[in-house]
């Protein structure tokens, strides 16, 4: 299944989900799509639909309302799938971690493969995070990237 394994690395489609971020990280995720960073070079496409996604990019801390949604979306992504938590909020809850409605980082609800810290995470870091996720996938499959 060599070609399929290679293709998985070459064509990660991402889905971006915003829990309760301050929108700082969201802007940075979108910045990755711009001509300056152009993540489509790596075959990365922002899909906006879990059914087509391979990598779930989550920003913001999980609150009581979004926990269920996040879980649902994660379940709807077909395997194999990776999760990248972008921003300090998504990693641990960040500045919001003591709020009345906040559960904490994304890993409270779904398993996370790569943590990208930063407030906000820089586009380079985000791209790096997705590439790290792909490397992890490659290692799991036993193929070279």
């Amino acid at each position: 299944m060599g070609i399929i394994h290679t293709s998985r690395i070459k064509s990660p489609w991402i889905m971006h989900f915003d829990n309760s971020s301050c929108n700082g990280c969201d802007i940075e995720v979108l910045a990755c799509l711009t001509p300056l960073y152009d993540i489509e070079r790596f075959g990365i496409v922002n899909m906006g639909n879990p059914k087509h996604a391979d990598v779930l990019v989550v920003t913001g801390a999980v609150n009581r309302r979004t926990a269920r949604v996040l879980k649902n979306l994660y379940d709807q992504i077909p395997d194999p799938k990776m999760v990248v938590a972008v921003g300090t909020c998504a990693c641990s809850g960040g500045v919001f971690h003591n709020c009345y409605n906040i559960l904490g980082g994304v890993d409270k609800v779904i398993p996370v493969d790569v943590y990208v810290p930063g407030c906000a995470a820089r586009p380079e870091a985000i791209i790096d995070g997705v590439v790290l996720a792909l490397q992890k996938l490659a290692k799991l499959q036993g193929v070279a990237i």
Binding site: R68, V69, N72, D75, Q76
Partner: peptide, 20 residues
Amino acid sequence: LRPVYMCGEQVGGTDADEWI
């Protein structure tokens, strides 16, 4: 079989037709 996409707001299993 998976439930349809309803922005992650669906309730129920495979043939979910309710959302919150």
